[in-house]
Design a protein around this nucleic acid. Structure first.
Length: 863
RNA sequence: GCCCGCGUGGUGGAAUGGUAGACACAGGAGACUUAAAAUCUCCAGGCCUUAGUGCCGUGCCGGUUCGAGUCCGGCCGCGGGUACCA
């Protein structure tokens, strides 16, 4: 009956053998289809989802932490009577597969599917409560074909369009580079200085939904405030003034947008982006301008590179009139820090109150004209004075409203003045840009359109989907192999039937991850979703993933849910697809950089933690003895090799130990630095739990002197652990479980009470250590699987304490404590406290100035 | 640069504005053992030749409060994101 315990008496206790226990119970769950999700009306549904992994080939501790957290929630919800959907898949398109093909040969497809197989094999031993029958990879044609169908629907609804946008261009390899492939402004393979170049690309019209994506954030109560704030700032709604500067030469006025029109009297010059139409025209007319603009286009496209790079400017010679004083002429400069994508691509600069303008004006000796008084009053002009809009300032050169008002009021008054006099208008703008989805790469979802000489851009017919990637491609040359594929590119026009060319750009991998959560509700449907299934399972009740996805992935998914709803692929309620979000911290680890050599391409060599050793006060490569430079604590990343293999822990101590270990100690939302010590201790603790339970199992069902206390402690444990699990305080739950285990171990209670306590302990541990808990459950004669057993409920009556210890503070410092009954009246507590000798001594015969009694908490006497 | 976080003993960390350091790890002492392992018990923030229930202590400086690790302002350090890494 109890195989782990058979034929052995209490003195020769059976050992905790994780490998046997875990294999056994995983088979039992599989046989009972415990985690297969089926639609049913008799239970409330619960959809828990962890962000699916990229199949890098190795499961790392970050994955284990992420999936274990989700598993705790999933198993807990199962125990509380929910119909749980807990699926898993792979975000399988992306650059690393192509990089691997280039570096070691082989095919991205083969590399990816091999990695998926490996990772599934690594995940299965963890005993996660996943419905594996729903698994898919985004590189499965069944998945990306439906994604192509979505694209066509979006196209029809006007949610996708084409326009020009800049990319990183490697002039030596003649190829587009991802931001990650640009290191210090140079291409990572060629080493050539990268340039910004324009290409025609596909865009999702996410900016049409700016206002909705912003205002809907207010209703996401179960999202972390920081994520909502980050998204709010990213969308970047601003109210400002748009107006034209008349050109002295009589050409078309230059339209600018500003969020600080109140500083207009401090205007020093007008700045335009190097990509502004005026700059482009001058570029074609003047060699000097062409050379300058070319200089501006050097370097990568990231906002960081542009914002932190050296500020460059050139006077165009164009002069414009100040809108409030036609006599006042301002120069027009081309400036490399002005983005064509934001506002109108042209600004007016007020160096006195904008640090970036200040630096530019200082460098090029342009005037700095204060508009409001710096309260420091030093007249110090080494930096700009930049008060917030909420601050009240004294305008010395204002033109609208009072001389003393907040920046906000000043802005509004300036907008009113401009509108009343007809030279400008108040407008609302958003920082959020449309989402460019075209990628000039092979390993992604092909964009299902065709370019026809006669018909232009023509959508593929749905019956021709999926447009599958061809397998016969090579990566021996830089660039997109689809561009040079002999036959795949050639096709016939879906509209007129004449020979045409297939689009060779593929989709951004963020597209793949923007709707997988919806696909999980009906992963084999022959439309993107099955509305009946989506209606039942959506929304995701609890989404769990890394904080690094706070903006892009989550914002894109929110947009996609809206777009899918518009196209009839998701119900109305799913426009916000994630009801609750939890962002867990990352598992970090030191990076080991080889200090003695670079690789053949001159790039840094990184070593795995397992490859290095610490000795003689330094760190060295085990095999070669080369010296290592240790870079502390960074996100575990395959490219930096600082990953720890969880399989080592699983094979040494078992999955439950690994699960218990990643959940204990660190709060889930915080980053955790991986250290190897501690895993053994976790295993010791689980062995101890097993031993204590096994010992209880051998006891007679008698009573003992500690029975009442143990029952009370049991109910307290239920209360505390449940609260911890429900609030993602897994580390707190585990701390309580340690305490409860100690209580149980030392308790002099009788067999019946101890067995009951051990059963509850097993249940409370079961979301974290499901295999061990099943084993203990069986040992103690529990009915069925613990996975299906109803979660224990704490009896309120058992939680009430009779007395409480109150600390007494004198002037805020703890000086004594008193024990009083829980419901004692405030005035009675005050009397007892004042009578205390420490208080009497401190008061020295005087009356207290004040006495604060916080019931059940503290007494503070102000002497 | 900009946006968002985080900072507490040797270490991971606990603490609805109310006893700072719960619970662990590493460490120390002891019990058991021929011995080791395992297990069990106890100690453990810093300071002091006053060892008091004394003083100091949650990155630094200031503020609000009867009371601040927690709230506010300003610094410093670290991490995430910055639209083509996923």
């Amino acid at each position: 009956m109890h195989p782990a315990f058979s034929c052995k008496g209490p003195l020769k206790m059976s050992r905790y053998e994780a490998s046997q226990i875990e294999a056994k119970w995983q088979e039992a769950w599989e046989a009972a289809s415990t985690f297969e999700a089926k639609r049913t009306a008799d239970k409330p549904k619960y959809y828990v989802l962890e962000m699916f992994p990229y199949p890098s080939g190795k499961l790392h501790m970050g994955h284990v932490r992420n999936y274990t957290m989700g598993d705790v929630i999933a198993r807990y919800k199962l125990s509380t009577g929910h119909n749980v959907l807990h699926p898993m898949g792979f975000d399988a398109f992306g650059m690393p597969a192509e990089n691997a093909a280039m570096a070691i040969g082989g095919h991205p497809k083969e590399w990816t599917y091999n990695n998926i197989d490996t990772m599934v094999e690594q995940m299965k031993p963890l005993g996660l409560s996943l419905d594996w029958s729903r698994m898919f990879a985004t590189c499965d044609p069944e998945y990306y074909g439906q994604q192509q169908a979505l694209f066509l629907d979006f196209l029809e609804k006007g949610l996708v369009y084409r326009k020009n946008a800049v990319v990183n261009w490697d002039p030596v390899d003649m190829t587009v580079l991802a931001n990650e492939q640009v290191e210090g402004g140079r291409g990572w393979r060629s080493g050539a200085l990268v340039e910004r170049r324009e290409l025609t690309q596909w865009f999702f019209k996410i900016s049409d939904h700016s206002e909705e994506l912003l205002s809907a954030l207010d209703n996401l109560e179960n999202w972390p405030a920081k994520v909502r704030l980050m998204q709010e700032n990213w969308i970047g709604k601003s109210r400002g003034l748009q107006f034209g500067f008349e050109r002295v030469d009589g050409e078309e006025p230059i339209t600018v947008y500003t969020t600080r029109p109140d500083t207009l009297m401090g205007a020093s010059f007008v700045g335009i982006s190097p990509d502004h139409p005026i700059a482009k025209q001058l570029e074609s007319e003047s060699e000097e301008v062409a050379a300058f603009v070319a200089e501006c286009r050097k370097g990568g496209t990231t906002e960081e590179a542009i914002e932190t790079g050296e500020k460059l400017g050139m006077d165009t010679g164009i002069r414009v009139r100040h809108p409030l004083n036609p006599e006042w002429e301002l120069p027009v400069w081309i400036a490399n820090f002005i983005l064509m994508d934001y506002g109108t691509g042209a600004i007016f600069a007020c160096p006195a109150h904008d640090q970036r303008d200040f630096e530019f004006a200082t460098k090029y000796e342009l005037p700095i004209i204060p508009v409001f008084e710096d309260p420091a009053g030093t007249g110090d002009l080494s930096e700009a004075y930049v008060p917030t809009k909420a601050e009240k300032v004294k305008y010395v050169k204002g033109f609208a409203g009072d001389t003393e008002q907040t920046g906000e009021d000043g802005v509004n008054a300036a907008v009113d003045q401009a509108e009343a006099n007809g030279w400008g208008e108040g407008v609302t703008k958003y920082r959020l840009r449309d989402w460019g989805l075209s990628r000039q790469r092979y390993w992604g979802c092909p964009i299902p359109v065709v370019h026809c000489d006669d018909c232009g851009v023509v959508p593929e017919k749905k019956e021709n989907l999926p447009i599958e990637l061809p397998d016969d491609v090579s990566f021996d040359k830089p660039g997109n192999p689809l561009d040079r594929h002999p036959t795949w590119r050639n096709c016939s026009c879906p509209k007129c039937g004449k020979p045409a060319l297939r689009e060779t750009d593929t989709m951004d991998t963020f597209v793949d991850s923007s709707w997988y959560f919806a696909r999980f509700t009906a992963p084999r449907a022959d439309t993107p979703t099955d509305m009946a299934e989506a209606e039942y399972w959506m929304n995701v009740d609890q989404y769990i993933g890394g904080i690094e996805h706070a903006i892009l992935h989550l914002l894109y998914s929110r947009f996609f849910a809206r777009a899918m709803q518009i196209c009839g692929h998701l119900p109305e309620k799913s426009v916000e697809p994630f009801d609750a979000l939890f962002t867990q911290g990352m598992v970090t680890h030191a990076i080991y950089e080889n200090a003695e050599r670079k690789d053949e391409n001159g790039r840094t060599v990184y070593h795995y933690p397992a490859e290095v050793e610490e000795r003689d006060g330094g760190t060295f490569v085990k095999e070669t003895g080369e010296k290592i430079k240790v870079i502390p604590s960074a996100k575990m990343s395959k490219s930096k090799n600082n990953v720890v293999d969880p399989l080592a822990i699983i094979s040494a101590y078992g999955a439950d130990t690994a699960r218990w270990f990643v959940l204990s100690d660190s709060p889930p939302e915080r980053d955790v630095e991986w250290t190897a010590s501690g895993a053994e201790a976790a295993h010791k603790h689980l062995s101890r739990v097993y031993r204590i339970a096994a010992e209880a199992a051998t006891m007679d069902d008698g009573t003992g002197k500690d029975d009442d206390t143990l029952v009370r402690e049991t109910h307290k444990a239920i209360q505390d652990v449940t609260l911890g699990v429900e609030s993602f305080g897994f580390n707190a739950s585990i701390a309580k479980l340690y305490g409860f285990t100690n209580t149980l171990a030392k308790s002099k209670a009788g067999g019946a009470a101890k067995k009951q306590a051990a059963k509850v302990l097993a249940q409370l541990m079961s979301p974290m250590t499901p295999h061990l808990s099943e084993a203990i459950w069986e040992l103690l004669g529990g009915e069925g699987l613990i996975a299906n057993a109803p979660w224990p409920v704490a009896d309120e009556a058992m939680l009430v304490e009779d007395t409480v210890t109150l600390p007494i503070q004198i002037n805020g410092k703890r000086r004594a404590e008193i024990e009083v009954s829980k419901d004692l009246d405030k005035s009675e507590v005050e009397k007892i406290a004042l009578a205390h000798e420490a208080v009497q001594k401190a008061l020295d015969g005087n009356a207290p100035k004040k006495v604060i009694v916080v019931p059940g908490r503290i007494v503070n006497v102000v002497a």
